[in-house]
Design a protein around this nucleic acid. Structure first.
Length: 112
DNA sequence: GACTTGACTAGAC
DNA sequence: AGTCTAGCCAAGT
């Protein structure tokens, strides 16, 4: 399994009406320091991956270098009941709390 | 292998 | 509350 495919498998488990942060996804796949790479994986992902359910640590829709994907993300979130307040998703209310069954077996943390 | 590029983040002003 | 920075790391050249 590559890093990307594990990320995709995890993101597919985020239920409608909930969100996860890039950092959270990184932790859940056992690579706590790879939040940035999670963003990279979302940049181009299969159509069946609900990429719009991943936001940054502040509940905001992360800025793209280019393109209008930000608007699409907001619309998709609102369509499934995730309302933004002051430009951010209230994580206290909408952040996904996975159960044990949702989680893959975690990788060994990388040592430095 | 050695760069470069970001949908990241926590911490420091 | 904003703006920077340094550290991070998978992928693509």
């Amino acid at each position: 399994m590559t890093f990307r495919s594990e990320v995709y498998a995890l993101v597919r488990r985020i239920p409608r009406g909930h969100v996860a942060t890039y950092g959270q996804v990184a932790v859940l796949v056992g690579r706590a320091r790879s939040a940035r790479a999670v963003g990279g994986a979302m940049r181009s992902c299969p159509d069946d991956v609900p990429w719009h359910r991943v936001v940054n640590s502040q509940g905001r829709i992360s800025r793209r270098r280019q393109g209008s994907g930000m608007l699409t993300q907001r619309i998709r979130l609102e369509q499934e009941g995730v309302a933004l307040r002051l430009g951010r998703v209230p994580l206290a209310r909408f952040q996904w709390e996975p159960t044990r069954a949702d989680l893959p077996r975690r990788r060994r943390p990388r040592r430095h």
